[in-house]
Amino acid sequence: MNLQLILSDFNQKTKRTLRFVALIIFLLFPVFVHADTIPENNKHSLGYVFLPDYYKLQYAGGIGFFSVGIGYGFFNERLDISYFYGYVPRWFSKEDLQSVSLQLTGKPLRIRPDNKTEYYPLNIGFFVHHTFGSEYFIALPDYYPEDYYWWAPGRTGGLFVEGQFNYKFNTSRNMFSEIGIYYRVVTRGIYLTSKFSNASVPLEDIFSLGLGIIIYK
């Protein structure tokens, strides 16, 4: 077995491992659902603090046919950092696609009509999206000369604008007493570049719509 074969085998194994880790992160979190029973005075316990602030379930929006996410809010809910696992079933793309994305959302505007409802009319987000699979390379394969492609199909960055409604229930439960819904318009750097260099690219080819629900801790 030559070095190249060993390396490619190693890469395949690394990719499989990464995919596995991504899945495990999501599979482990439901274990914490029983944290529902955490009494009020335990809200400062280490376990509770590290529990994600929210879970998201998203339809479309450029990161998977459906995606599940976890994340944390910072600066009094003005900044969100979320991590998504996205899935595209093969009947949409000929083969299953798995991907992960890391998202940063700024939420500068907040309207609170009453103490149960919140509306964020203009969230602005940035994300990095990583698709698994050998054809979605990140490092340029060695059969290309240097800089043959300036972009990597396996890792792209994008932007979105979003609107979000939150609602708090009247409940005695400590957890899962707030839910939200959001809609977002998403594009990517590579799509904007296409539009910039060829104005005839239709807008519906570079923007996509995503819809999601949020369950807060």
Binding site: S93, K94, E95, E135, Y136, F137, Y149, P153
Partner: peptide, 11 residues
């Protein structure tokens, strides 16, 4: 043909 372009093209 880059990325999954081969499948898309044939389709």
């Amino acid at each position: 043909l880059v990325s999954n372009g081969n499948d898309s093209y044939r389709e």
